[in-house]
Design a protein around this nucleic acid. Structure first.
Length: 156
DNA sequence: GCCAACGTTGGC
DNA sequence: GCCAACGTTGGC
């Protein structure tokens, strides 16, 4: 059992979108970074905890708690010539990019990035390191416990 | 919209 | 394999 932080642009897929999906589950698609892909491929397991983070928006921050709901499988958008995520070098025989399914568990109060930066227990989070842009990053048990406690301070 | 930081590409 | 140029990320 591991823990992860996964970034999504809420204009594209928000935490509420996942909550509203059938079985509260959506495919996590569009990862086009090898390090992030390798985390999904090599280190994720069904049931791992996910901090669902909203990036590239007015107030970036953690929007809710989710979990890994599938094994890795090829990301369909890489084969779609009409998709923003199309990769001409990927083939059905040799896919380059993968997805996992993500199931929303619960929304806490919204935890803004600025607040996370003010919390000493979170200062080592990969997300908060200078220049960190990884869309999927590992979270320690202690960091997870801290963030979950903050999310549960006030429920929506 | 700016720009720092990082990743990828491609010529050599 | 080096590294300059270019593209992307993402907070502000």
């Amino acid at each position: 059992m591991r823990y992860w932080l996964m970034k999504s642009e809420p204009d594209e897929v928000s935490f509420d979108d996942v909550l509203a999906a059938p079985a509260q589950t959506l495919a996590w698609f569009g990862v086009r970074n090898y390090q992030a892909r390798n985390f999904m491929r090599d280190a994720m397991s069904v049931g791992d905890g996910i901090l669902f983070y909203h990036s590239s928006c007015a107030v970036p921050g953690v929007a809710g708690i989710a979990e890994v709901a599938s094994s890795p499988y090829p990301d369909a958008t890489q084969f779609d010539a009409a998709s923003h995520y199309h990769d001409p070098k990927a083939t059905l025989e040799q896919p380059r990019w993968i997805s996992v399914d993500v199931r929303a568990i619960e929304a806490g109060r919204y935890l803004p990035l600025a607040e996370m930066r003010s919390i000493p227990a979170l200062e080592d989070m990969v997300l908060l390191q200078k220049g960190s842009r990884l869309s999927i990053s590992p979270v320690t048990q202690a960091q997870w416990n801290t963030v979950v406690a903050l999310l549960k301070e006030g429920k929506r």
